[in-house]
Amino acid sequence: MDTTGIHDEALARLHCSGPERLGRLSNHAPMAVEALAARGRAAAVHHWLDLYARKLEDFPAGHARVTHANWPQALGDPRRAADWIAYFRELLAQRPWRDVLAEWWPRLLPGMYGGSTHPVIRVGHAVRGLLAGGGGDAETVDATAPRLVELAHGLGYWAARHHPAPAVLPLPEAADAVRALHAVPPIGVRTEASRSASRASRTCPGGRRRR
């Protein structure tokens, strides 16, 4: 448990940054600083964050407000990350965080695969941070405000990247593991052209590759 306040300081630094970079890579910093603090390495947090900061991007712009009425239409739209985070910040300002989490994790669970499961992992770190910081209920909200905001960021990222898995299709029985593996349809084959396009998308104007 971090009693130095460094965990909260680091989260406050990070909440000006977006949940992703390059449109697809998750921001690992909130999870890393929570893990460092939880393992008794809070003294290393700011130095680590200084090194990671070059990978952070600005917080994204909002598009349209998420509300109690329109949230199903906004679910799974990564362009709405800022809108979702704002929505959860409102909810967490009005209700205990445990109540918000209990209402929303069943809604979000079917789409936990979006963002390579990083959103749900971020929520897990946020919850552990809240539990370690006094619970985050109304009487301790001042002491844990950055951790409540972190939960809003995690839930908002999860909602924006919500991506349910396709239906599971039964496969015929196989005599051994090799035949069973061969019966699984491939997701797709990456050609050299697709790899070249991917590399080009990561190159900034002037030929300098993005970090």
Rank of each mutant, 00 (worst) to 15 (best):
113 Y>L: 14
56 L>Y: 07
92 L>K: 01
71 W>I: 05
23 G>F: 11
183 A>P: 04
95 R>P: 06
137 D>W: 12
125 H>Q: 07
208 R>E: 15
108 L>E: 01
27 N>W: 04
63 H>L: 15
40 G>E: 02
117 T>S: 10
14 L>D: 01
112 M>W: 13
183 A>V: 05
13 R>G: 03
8 D>I: 03
51 L>R: 13
108 L>M: 04
113 Y>D: 14
72 P>F: 09
10 A>T: 02
112 M>Q: 13
152 A>N: 02
42 A>F: 00
154 G>H: 02
186 P>F: 09
127 V>K: 00
77 D>G: 03
10 A>V: 01
197 A>C: 08
156 G>S: 10
23 G>P: 06
57 E>D: 14
153 H>V: 12
60 P>I: 04
99 D>E: 15
101 L>P: 02
64 A>L: 14
13 R>E: 08
72 P>C: 08
28 H>M: 09
186 P>T: 14
205 P>L: 12
102 A>E: 14
110 P>G: 07
186 P>E: 15
52 Y>K: 11
192 E>Q: 14
114 G>I: 01
41 R>G: 05
74 A>T: 04
193 A>K: 04
169 L>G: 11
169 L>A: 15
103 E>S: 14
44 A>Y: 03
163 H>D: 15
195 R>C: 13
155 L>K: 03
18 G>S: 05
82 A>D: 01
165 A>T: 08
29 A>E: 06
66 V>K: 03
78 P>K: 01
28 H>F: 07
5 G>V: 05
8 D>G: 09
107 R>T: 15
18 G>Q: 04
203 T>D: 06
63 H>W: 12
122 R>K: 05
61 A>F: 10
138 A>G: 13
64 A>Y: 10
100 V>L: 09
113 Y>P: 04
171 L>C: 08
100 V>E: 05
192 E>N: 12
183 A>I: 08
179 R>Y: 09
87 Y>L: 01
137 D>T: 13
147 R>V: 03
150 E>G: 06
67 T>L: 07
137 D>K: 09
